[in-house]
Amino acid sequence: MMALCAKKSDRRYRWTDALAPGGRRALFLLATIAIVLLFLGPIVILVVTSLRPGWAVFYIYRGTDFTLQNYRDVLATEAVMHAFVNSFLVATLATIVSIGVTVSSGYMLSRFRGPIPRAWFGTIYVFRTVPYISWVLPLYLVCYHLGIYDTYAGILLPHIAVHICFFSWIMKGFFDGIDPSMEYAALIDGCTRWGAFLRVALPSAIPAIAALGILSWLYTWNEFLFALILTGHNTALITVTMAQFVTELGTAWNLMSAMAVMAMGPAIIITLFAQKYVVRGLRI
């Protein structure tokens, strides 16, 4: 019954309560239509364009010719496929490594007091505000000097450095939310400090870490500036390849749309099937 009370209370006071029921419903419907048009509209147009033959793009609001040829063409372009594979590898590796590294540092920040956590937080906070452009420029020079420009390491390590900044702080938040008395109990029961971390604290943080991982993967997949500056032909990523198409073959909208639709595939899949984690991730 208490649960029931909680459930019914979802219906809170809303400003539309001031309208008559009929007017409220009409307003709501209008809002729904507007939202669909504004937010889904451009995406739908892009998808439709990607299914039109080249000559019909210019008449996309008329005619009924549809084709999958654009997708075939894009898939047949070696540079594009190469970029897709690169993007996938970079996003996946960057996510796995950053999470692996920051799980422990986040835990440390959460459980231990002292000058190091404080200095760490200060560093992270300042870097959070530094504009990426101010940072990616010298990063390019550093990578060049280290001889890792246009290698996987040259794009992975900078991404990991960015992630580390955020993640260790976000992870600290996760672990702050977990009652340490569980770990004390584990310590008394004979676990080592490491054991308490791995077997007690870590499992409780898994859902939050999953949310973080999903968003970070997508973020790296979607990232543009690093990819633009820190990659060359060998490690070209999909966002940059796409941007080049926009400037180079500015009129082949059918091909570009097909490529864009493919590039936003992961985002759509994640939004549809892992929305719970996405919503959770956005809030951190």
Binding site: I35, F39, I43, L46, N222, M242, M264, V278
Partner: peptide, 23 residues
């Protein structure tokens, strides 16, 4: 509706910008 509203945030800004250019 939440899914639809989320989509622009989830797809790459590069793609979003491309879309708008086309629109």
């Amino acid at each position: 509706m939440q899914t639809i509203i989320l989509l622009p945030q989830m797809i790459a800004p590069v793609i979003g910008a491309m879309m708008m250019r086309w629109v």
